[in-house]
């Protein structure tokens, strides 16, 4: 199920401004890849280009290639909607649909694509909520509003919603930065389970988190304000944190900078 992502020579522009320059990296299937780096270095931007979510912003465009198991997701015959069905996303702030119940939130991705029968949906709801470690907490109140859950539960609801459509890849844009340490731990544990089945890319400002959860780490940096962000280096997490090849990486992870 999980797929490999190969990014080569990726440039991202917002209008005339170049946000990211020359990113080349490979995301291995069934593993967690962490993007770290100072604010504004383009790591979230790169993440969004992996499922073409940046296209929601007017004026955003990319150059270069993003291959999903060899297939260019920016090919001329590719429908971005289908790309996003294959590559799911979880955002920084939990964003359950406020008009929907917990149940409806989980199956929103399916129901808004085509008609499903109730028994099919029941199975998906339980499977997705179990997958997000939320089932035991909410199984008796599936008809309650999703926005009534706590922040950590809402984020796990959003993860359940994202995996309900059975994507190949899960992109997480700082999924824990709005959560308390206990909810963060719950999400991190969940990520370890999810990586058995999905390719996971996570953007995080928390370096301990990157060191704890990820298999590979990519460090992004920018030369100066107003300059495009660049990928400094990418490698196994233990290597990046213990024995980085670049001076900038060492400075950043040891806290001497940024």
């Amino acid at each position: 199920m999980a797929k490999r992502i190969e990014v080569s020579d990726l440039n991202v522009y917002y209008g005339a401004f170049q946000a990211v320059e020359g990113v080349t990296l490979t995301v291995e299937p069934r593993s967690i890849t962490a993007f770290i780096g100072p604010s504004g270095c383009g790591k979230s931007t790169v993440l969004r280009t992996l499922n073409r979510m940046h296209e929601v912003i007017p004026g955003a465009r990319v150059e270069g290639k993003v291959l999903l198991d060899g297939e260019d997701i920016y090919g001329s015959d590719i429908d971005p909607v289908n790309v996003r069905r294959t590559i799911g996303m979880v955002f920084q702030k939990p964003n359950p649909f406020p008009t929907m119940s917990i149940y409806e939130n989980v199956v929103a991705g399916l129901k808004l694509q085509r008609k499903y029968k109730r028994p099919e949906l029941d199975i998906v709801v339980e499977k997705s909520l179990r997958g997000a470690n939320l089932w035991e907490e909410v199984k008796d109140r599936l008809d309650r509003p999703g926005a009534g859950l706590s922040g950590g539960q809402q984020q796990r609801l959003c993860i359940a919603r994202a995996i309900s459509v059975e994507p190949q890849v899960l992109l997480m844009d700082e999924p824990c930065s709005a959560l308390d340490p206990i909810s963060t731990l719950a999400i991190e544990d969940l990520m370890q389970e999810l990586k058995e089945r999905y390719t996971i890319v996570i953007v995080t400002h928390n370096m301990q988190q990157a060191a704890r959860v990820s298999d590979k780490t990519a460090f992004f940096n920018l030369a100066a304000t107003g300059k495009p962000g660049k990928l400094v280096e990418v490698g196994n997490t233990t290597m990046i944190f213990n024995n980085p090849t670049q001076r900038a990486t060492e400075d950043y992870i040891s806290g001497r900078f940024g």
């Binding site: 979510m53 289908n82 996003r84 294959t86 929103a108 991705g109 808004l112 994202a162 459509v165």
Partner: peptide, 17 residues
């Protein structure tokens, strides 16, 4: 909130939907 539209787009929901 734009976040709700993004959430739907990220699920592969079409714009009109």
């Amino acid at each position: 909130p734009p976040a709700l539209r993004e959430a739907a787009f990220a699920l592969g929901v079409r714009k009109w939907r």
